[in-house]
Structures are given as structure tokens and as C-alpha cells.
Simulated assay, not measured.
Amino acid sequence: MGPPEERSDADLIAAHVAGDHDAFGELFGRHRDRLWAVALRTMGNPEDAADGLQDGLIAAYRRAGSFRGEAAVTTWLHRVVVNACLDRLRAAKVRRAEALPDDLDEGTARGSTITSTPDDPADHALDAERRREVLDALATLPAEQRAALVLVDMEGYPVAEVADMLGVAVGTVKSRCSRGRARLAELLGVGDTPGDPDHPQQRNPPTSAPVRSTRPRGPPAD
């Protein structure tokens, strides 16, 4: 007799709602790395990321019965976690340039734009410096723009799926990404790239240019 079939995400949600005490833990374990990477990049430091992730998981645990299957379970989980992180950022009025950590596990990202493993130590040092500059600049963005860029540019999610995660229109995600990229380009002194998040150059930029484009100065905009 072969091993039992792995339960789908939807099956695990349903089992959790039905009273299976192990189902939610299994679901979280399946998506933990990606959720942690998003929380870490959105919050800017491990301590706040841990709090944001915990808030999101508690909310998901309690609200699982409201999941109706209109979106993928992973989309729903990201929506809950990202919104929990954004709630913390808004409550704390975090608008400071706080460096993001260097110890992000790039292997957990779906489409990270900041990946490189050069063999030459000098190249490695340069790559690390560029990555630090990008992450430091990213941390200065308003929370909503940062979340959009993290999900679209660093995690590689389609714009439409990110719109579902954030509960906003597709055009709003594109606007936030465009403004965020314009600001990053200004901070980093790099040239602009096409503003449409679905543009091929936006989805797969060369590693020598670790940022796509960025947002202008001024008040946060949706």
C-alpha cells in the first residue's frame, strides 16, 4: 500500500475549519519560507517581521472559515500576512530609512531581482554593495509601495495576483510599482525602465541592474 496522497492547500483549509488540529500547521509549514521572506522585506527587520507574520497567521487561523476559494490559498495567505504587516507599519507610522537585513534567503523568492553568485571575491563585494543600496532605498518607500514592489519585483508574482493579495485594483498596483521604481531610480542614480509591471524587462531584468525603475519624490500615492 503506497503512502497517502498529499492534501491540497484547499483540503488543509477545509480540514482545519472542520477541526483537524494538524492541518493549519501543515499548511503554514508548506508556505513558511515564502511568507517569511515577504514579511521580512516588507517590515525591514527580523523582529518586526516576526510580529507581522505572527499577526497574519493568527488572523488566517481565525478567519479560515471565511475562505471561499475565489483565489488560491497561497494568494489568500499572502494577503492576510501582507495586510498584517502593513497594519503594523501604519500603526507605527514607520517612514524611516531603515536598512533591510542581508540574511534574506534568496532561494525562497519566486522571482527575486537581487540574485547573483559571482565567483570573483571583488565581484561578490560589489554585488553585496549593490544589494545593500537597493534594500536600503527600498526601505524608504511608503509601506504600500514597498509591499507592491516586494511582491511584484522581488517575489515575482503577477500584477493581477498581487492586486488580489492587497485588495486593490490592478491599476493601483501598477501605479504603486511605477512610483516606487521611479523613487528607487532617483535614489540609486539609475536610468528609468518601462513603467508597466508586466513589461518583459520588468519581469526579468539583468542581474547587473538589480532594480527596474522607481518612484518620484512627493507624498505617498495609491
Rank of each mutant, 00 (worst) to 15 (best):
E129K: 14
H31I: 05
P118H: 11
T75W: 11
L40P: 05
A71N: 06
H199M: 09
P142G: 12
D22Y: 09
A139M: 06
H78C: 11
Q54I: 02
G111V: 12
L40I: 05
V159G: 00
V38Q: 04
A18L: 07
P101A: 03
P220I: 14
N83T: 06
S208Y: 03
N45I: 03
M43V: 06
V82K: 01
V150G: 01
A209R: 10
E98A: 15
A125Q: 14
A122V: 08
R32I: 00
T214L: 13
V38M: 06
L86R: 09
D105A: 15
E106F: 08
G52E: 02
D123M: 11
Q145C: 11
T113W: 07
T117N: 09
R203A: 02
V82N: 03
G218K: 01
A14Y: 02
A185E: 04
W36E: 01
G189E: 04
R63Y: 15
A18P: 07
D22A: 14
R212D: 00
L104C: 10
S175Y: 05
D136M: 13
H78M: 14
M43L: 11
C85N: 05
G25C: 03
G65L: 10
S175A: 14
N45L: 08
V168Q: 13
S116A: 12
L141P: 00
F24S: 02
D48H: 14
P205G: 07
L104H: 07
E5L: 12
R41N: 05
A169R: 15
A182V: 10
F24A: 00
E5C: 03
T172E: 11
L166R: 09
L53G: 04
A109P: 00
A15H: 00
V82F: 10
A59F: 12
D123L: 09
D20S: 07
T108Q: 14
D127V: 06
P206A: 12
R146P: 00
D120P: 01
P46K: 09
D103L: 13
A49N: 01
D22R: 14
E5K: 03
T42D: 08
G52A: 11
G167L: 12
V170E: 04
P205R: 12
I13F: 06
A49F: 04
L126S: 10
T193V: 04
V173E: 03
L149S: 02
V81H: 03
R183M: 11
R181C: 12
R96E: 15
D127K: 05
D127R: 13
N45Y: 07
D119T: 13
R68H: 12
C85L: 01
D51A: 14
S8A: 06
T193L: 05
E155H: 11
A169T: 11
L166P: 09
M1E: 00
N83H: 10
H21L: 02
P194L: 13
A169I: 02
A221I: 05
D196W: 04
Y61R: 08
L135S: 06
E47P: 01
D55P: 00
E98S: 15
M165W: 09
